[in-house]
Computed example of a mutant assay.
Amino acid sequence: MAELAPAGYVILGLDIIKYSQKSLRDQKLAQETVDRCFNWAIKEKQPEDDAQAPHWVDAGDGGYALFRWAEVDVLEVLKDFYKRLNRENANITEENYKVLVRAAIHKDQVIVWDAEIAGRQVRKFTGHAINNCARLMSGMIKEHDAQVVCSRSVLDAIMVMDKLASATRLKDIKDKHGIEHEVWNLHVGTLLGVKPIKRELHGEPTMRVYPGPSR
């Protein structure tokens, strides 16, 4: 594909919890489990137009899916993914072998293009969207097994379309440039998300409840 102009993508980041503590064999099995559950979840919602197929940026212990879809459709993919992952984990008796995944959703501009590296065509991506999605995940605490967080722009779209969704604002994430990023804990009935604990909540109680004061 030729270089495309910057476009808005919904970025869904997945991170396999305690990935580095697994053996090489179990790391591979964990990746295969995530790939399998995620692939089938996408197929359930995939439009017939192949041009709308999401891109995937691999990170080993997870990765980032780049969607040109509505935020609520990406959320449906995530719900389906967790349903499938929970079913697979239910068949595993040893807790250490279960595959636990946390997720973050963000939206921003991304440029996608093809480049040649070592004689092969590879898909390349650039944009603050991916980095900022990673920052959202970087602030997630270890106590949760399947937490889902998102940025405010994504949350606004989700809350309009999904009547079961609720959100609690967490502490802002400050990046290396000193920029603060608003983070929301996303919860959808019994389908998705976890209840946040006190030490991860935003310091100002009046700002914890959606919609809350906007900057």
Score class of each variant (00 low, 15 high):
V57A: 03
V57L: 12
V57K: 08
V57W: 03
V57C: 10
D58E: 08
G60E: 04
G60K: 06
D61P: 02
D61K: 10
G62D: 07
G63H: 08
G63E: 08
G63Y: 05
Y64M: 12
Y64R: 06
A65G: 03
A65E: 01
A65M: 08
A65C: 12
L66I: 04
L66V: 03
L66A: 07
R68L: 08
V72S: 14
D73Q: 12
D73H: 11
V74R: 09
E76K: 13
E76C: 06
E76D: 12
V77P: 01
V77C: 06
L78E: 02
K79V: 13
K79P: 05
K79S: 06
D80T: 13
D80M: 12
D80C: 10
D80E: 13
F81W: 02
Y82K: 02
Y82D: 00
Y82N: 05
Y82V: 00
K83W: 13
N86W: 09
N86T: 08
R87I: 05
E88G: 05
E88M: 12
N91S: 14
I92R: 10
I92N: 07
T93S: 10
T93Q: 11
E94Y: 11
E95K: 04
N96P: 00
N96H: 15
L100K: 11
V101D: 01
V101G: 01
R102N: 03
R102I: 07
R102M: 03
A103T: 04
A103R: 02
A103D: 03
I105Q: 00
I105W: 00
D108M: 05
D108F: 02
D108H: 12
Q109V: 08
V110K: 03
V110F: 05
I111E: 06
V112W: 00
D114M: 11
D114H: 12
A115T: 14
A115S: 15
A115H: 05
E116V: 13
E116M: 09
I117E: 14
I117R: 11
A118M: 11
A118C: 08
A118I: 08
A118K: 15
G119Q: 06
G119M: 10
R120Q: 13
R120M: 12
R120N: 13
R120H: 14
Q121V: 13
Q121H: 13
Q121A: 10
R123V: 06
K124Q: 15
K124R: 15
K124W: 11
F125M: 07
F125D: 01
T126G: 14
H128L: 14
H128D: 15
A129S: 09
N131H: 14
N131C: 07
N132P: 03
C133D: 02
C133N: 06
C133A: 15
A134H: 10
A134P: 05
R135K: 15
M137N: 04
S138K: 15
S138F: 10
G139K: 07
G139W: 06
M140H: 01
I141P: 03
K142Y: 10
K142A: 11
K142E: 12
E143K: 10
E143D: 12
E143Q: 13
E143T: 09
A146Q: 08
A146V: 01
Q147H: 05
V148I: 04
V149A: 00
V149N: 00
C150L: 02
R152S: 12
V154H: 03
A157N: 13
M159N: 12
V160F: 15
V160K: 15
M161R: 15
D162S: 10
K163W: 10
K163R: 13
L164R: 14
L164Y: 11
